[in-house]
Write a protein that binds this DNA or RNA. Structure first.
Lengths: 152, 152
DNA sequence: CTAAATGCAAAACGTTTGCATATAG
DNA sequence: CTATATGCAAACGTTTTGCATTTAG
């Protein structure tokens, strides 16, 4: 599915929920489409949307992201550093999408794997807890930084 | 190991790092010892330390928590709600300590299990990433809320 | 005596809100 | 015409910082 079709799907999804695909919201989505591995902060997105719409306000970016998150179009990530990051939600990916975060350079990479299916069943059985989502992050040193450390 | 021994261990650990176990830091630790399943916010801890030390300042609580986190005495949790929560780090528990977060009532329960040892080995092999820590949280509905939902 | 730690108030930070204005069904 | 959405500035809550003062090796 190409980008224009993605946008068209999102437009329909918004309209189903009495919301419009305004130029501002479209700009936000385009930024996320063009940076789908970047895990952008609201500020990042704000600065990039200004290329399309110099008049856009930061509050509008936040409000757009809030709406799009509620409609499951974007996914909000939290690395515990005091700000949220955003990425497009892709169908089927949600449960198999985890992050590797380098504690030295901050680089974030991803891997997709159904690591937790069995674990969740076990927890449901043992803990009387009905799991609907999860968040799994690994911290450590990426290849680049490990090579740097060997030298230094 | 009883509480006084825990404190003595922490005192030694602090002194090894040119830091003192001040009354303020001790108060913070005592609050955490007495609430080890509470996942307290900095504000919670601040209010509780005031029982021991009415003159303590919020900034001191933050600075204490920052230091204790750096020394691995306390562990900082982030549920993405805009504030951090803190708990004592217990030896051997770190890697086997995960959280179940109820999306309805906000209750946080824990379970301890070495779920990720094999997974980490696999990632190290496949992704060229050296893992030093991880964070695994499950979201869903706790027993209480599920029973409430059946009725409602 | 000196370095570390504190309390207070102010600042900083990311985020949210109030409100008048603009946009579009 | 009326709902929805916007930009701006002000407000918000959490966390950090500057600085004069206190504490303890």
């Amino acid at each position: 599915m190409d980008n224009e079709n993605v946008l068209e799907e999102i437009r329909k999804h918004l309209e189903k929920n009495e919301s419009r695909l305004t130029p501002q919201r479209e700009a936000v989505i385009r930024v996320l489409i063009n940076n789908d591995t970047g895990h952008l902060t609201a500020e990042d997105i704000f600065l990039q949307t200004k290329r399309y719409l110099p008049e856009i306000g930061l509050a509008t970016v936040y409000r757009s992201l809030e709406l799009l998150e509620k409609l499951n179009v974007v996914y909000r990530l939290d690395y515990g550093d005091g700000q949220s990051r955003y990425e497009l939600t892709r169908a089927n990916e949600e449960h198999y999408h985890h992050h590797l975060i380098c504690v030295q350079c901050g680089a974030i990479s991803e891997f997709n794997d159904d690591l937790l299916g069995d674990i969740e069943k076990q927890i449901a059985a043992e803990s009387d807890f009905h799991i609907t989502d999860h968040c799994l992050r690994f911290f450590g040193y990426c290849k680049n930084c490990r090579e740097g450390r060997k030298k230094g």
